[in-house]
Amino acid sequence: MKFSNIVSVKKIGRDFFEISFNIDSEVRAGQFLMVWVPGVKEIPMSVSNLKNPITISFKAIGETTKRLSAMRPGDRIFYRGPYGNTYPDPKGKTAYVAGGTGIASLLPLISAYPGDVYYGMRTAEDIVYKNLVNFVSTDDGSMGFKGNVVDLFIREKRKYDTVFVCGPEPMMKYFHDKINRNEYGNIYYSLERLMKCGVGICDSCSINGFRVCRDGTVFDHEQLNIMDEFGTVRRAESGRRIFLK
């Protein structure tokens, strides 16, 4: 476990925060850190800016993220990692499809490789990184397309050589099921699951024997084809299967 003194804490949207701090190892696009708030919990967080001071971007919704959002410059932030595999570099025309806080994981790519950014959220109040986004959807229609970002993406009918997808698992499952595979080149998804160890030994985040923390978090479209638990079975903290509709 390492620690660093926080350089800055910024509120960039409704309940949405960015914390920056310097770390002493190289982080690559798609990787995550295990961030520990002593006395509370340790949670995985994707890195949204890779160069020192690096940035983690998150929504303050649980106790741990709320405590993080209340931290001040100079406070100690505890972390280990980076862990996980990385997004491959995109080739050709590129699209980014993000749902909610999933955009944090895609930001390093978006800033390095130009492409069309599709961003879905619940309502207009949730908008972040507005200047980076090309196509917006909201569940309530308060901004952009009314509906989900996957339907928006399909409706636009644009062709891409590389597509990156990150968001809640039901959204990614819907994307995986709905799109016409032949119209796109490589498609990569960054998965999120309940994670405890972060290093591939506790089995909490496994989907069909693929550990999201170590074999992922990034998987390609064809790997997801063989994961029949993707979008259909999640795991309780005990490891018990919870079957989704």
Partner: peptide
């Protein structure tokens, strides 16, 4: 396998490992 008991247990809150 992981050790199995009679009833479901969530286990401890992370950090559960330390390298």
């Amino acid at each position: 396998t992981k050790s199995i008991g009679k009833d479901e247990r969530a286990g401890y809150v992370p950090p559960i490992i330390s390298e």
